[in-house]
């Protein structure tokens, strides 16, 4: 290398020798003091509807909400309570997807005041939702994007999944 490049390399090496260890040490000293994946987070995941423990499946269906296909299982979560567990077949590419139950036989094009929020969906993770009593008579499952404020798709609640 010519002298100028050698000098650039010399100063670059010294700068790296000073800056990088400081950065490394600072990132360790000030790193958050909580574990991102410890068992303590399980309760938070459960509260958000993530399925953290398996339950016995009573019935299983494939349902389509718009163009999105889900595997839906009715599960017994306690002696008196059933729920449905939804897993998207493909990654959901929707901003902030939410699942609603809405009464009626026809797929709604917009959310009505009588729609009930069941919870959020994410990627391909398996999520558990407790259906309202009104769902015993049927109704629609509605996939709604909170990010784009639009109904993405809807489909009838199969008889086998009714609470």
């Amino acid at each position: 290398m010519i002298l100028e490049r050698r000098q650039t390399h010399y100063f670059a090496a010294i700068a790296m020798a000073i800056v990088l260890p400081l950065l490394f040490a600072a990132s360790l000293i000030w790193r958050p003091n909580y574990a991102m994946t410890s068992g303590a987070a399980d309760e938070l995941f459960a509260r958000a509807g993530y399925v953290t423990e398996t339950a016995e499946s009573i019935a299983s269906e494939r349902i389509k909400l718009g163009v999105y296909t889900f595997t839906a299982d009715a599960v017994q979560v306690s002696l008196s309570e059933t729920a449905i567990e939804l897993t998207s077949v493909f990654n959901l590419r929707i901003p902030d997807p939410l699942l609603y139950w809405a009464p009626g036989k026809d797929a709604p094009e917009a959310l009505g005041d009588d729609a009930i929020l069941l919870g959020g969906l994410s990627g391909r993770s398996r999520r558990r939702f407790v259906l309202p009593d009104e769902a015993k008579s049927g109704g629609q499952l509605v996939l709604f994007s909170q990010g784009s404020s639009t109904v993405i798709g809807a489909g009838p609640l199969p008889d086998s999944l009714k609470p």
Partner: peptide, 20 residues
């Protein structure tokens, strides 16, 4: 990550000092 950083920086520093 720490060993990798010390290795790369150490080598460049040694070579730079030798050239200087």
């Amino acid at each position: 990550v720490g060993i990798g950083m010390v290795w790369v920086v150490g080598l460049h520093l040694a070579a730079a000092l030798q050239e200087a």
